[in-house]
Design a protein around this nucleic acid. Sequence first.
DNA 1: ACGGGCGGTATTACATGCAATACCCCGGTG
DNA 2: CACCGGGGTATTGCATGTAATACCGCCCGT
Lengths: 219, 219
Amino acid sequence: MTTAESGSLLAESVYRTLVDQIFEGALPPGAPLSVPALAARLDVSRSPVRESVQRLIHEGLAVHVPHAGARVLQLDEDAVRDVLAVREALDGLAAQEAARRASADDVAGLLELVERQADLLEEPTDPLRDARLDVELHTRVREVSGNRPLADALRRLDAQAHLYTSGMWAEESNRRIAVVEHRRIADAVAAGDADGARRAASAHVAAISVRMRRWRMSH
Amino acid sequence: MTTAESGSLLAESVYRTLVDQIFEGALPPGAPLSVPALAARLDVSRSPVRESVQRLIHEGLAVHVPHAGARVLQLDEDAVRDVLAVREALDGLAAQEAARRASADDVAGLLELVERQADLLEEPTDPLRDARLDVELHTRVREVSGNRPLADALRRLDAQAHLYTSGMWAEESNRRIAVVEHRRIADAVAAGDADGARRAASAHVAAISVRMRRWRMSH
DNA sequence: ACGGGCGGTATTACATGCAATACCCCGGTG
DNA sequence: CACCGGGGTATTGCATGTAATACCGCCCGT
């Protein structure tokens, strides 16, 4: 994170609002991000809004079009596949390093997250909540890996991919498969099996890629 | 690139100036980046400077310290190793995809760059120039890979690592080894040998990591 | 009817004003 | 001599002013 500091930073709260709206669909891919319009809508000046929009661009959630402001990122299928290809390599690396360095507490926290996700299978679907928990789980693994540049790189990629994979959480089968695959990763990390963790994590992302393509075709 | 557009964007030129000064050592790691001070020194208003500094932060070349502005990134040895570990995975992936997709022109351009680097061995050392050519070479491979998210992620990592590896170009042996390793990568890409390219590129980064550690110890 | 040029409009990019706030040095005190 | 508190100072963060510029729809000429 750049700063985090929960201090009442206006730009920070604007940023979070925009991110939330993007993920909730209020700002769909391709939507224009006009600084004056957003400033009026959120009732703040243009400065924090401009800063937030530029941050979105840097984080890869928006693109800057030369003379027409910014727009929410719009990926075609190939681009999503590219993102997932990178994640395949990096999440594998993260899991591998996590398996080497995980403390007992780390392992406990990880397993607990997986169980929480498993418990949610009994409840009705809430795609947004499920997607968030999934992000948290992956994020945890990356934190445990202790490699901050790695975690930073993955955070960006995640944000982009989740614009296009979050819808999949609505489907029961995908939720079940995800839990199984997550458990495999967590177990390997718990066992200190670095290579197994790497393979499990890479396979998980690869499987997401396949599922996504199928899901998109059936739409 | 994010915007690039040749328009005379003040913020863009300020950004480039700052990056140059960072890599040339005028702004060494840990140096404070005071917005008003830089604005006065560069004779522009604070707006483009503020924007540029925030961009540096997002790109990973500077860190924001809660109540004391920003400072040029300062990595310890472990962090550099982490960065290189990520690059090992990603540059391998980039070379692999490049080998699959390279056109005849791509290959020609790549080989020409390597030869240019080889020719430079005959001339006296110019660390800054050599480092730039090295970046260009790696960047070219990533462009050829056609995976933009991958190239973007690597660009950031490169920037960070180069703060700490650029000094190595002063040494003759390192320059020679680099050319050899680059040629291996380029040859594999030219031959369409995806797996060989991946291994060559990963090995190259791993070797950089080893050389860097040795170079740092000898100081 | 259709193509080309033109003004209205909204936007960006930059400059600057302003208040709040945290740091630092320095002098005073136990 | 060590420690603590207060004022000065510089900085951030936000708001707003302003010029240049590119786009869009409309009107006019052919």
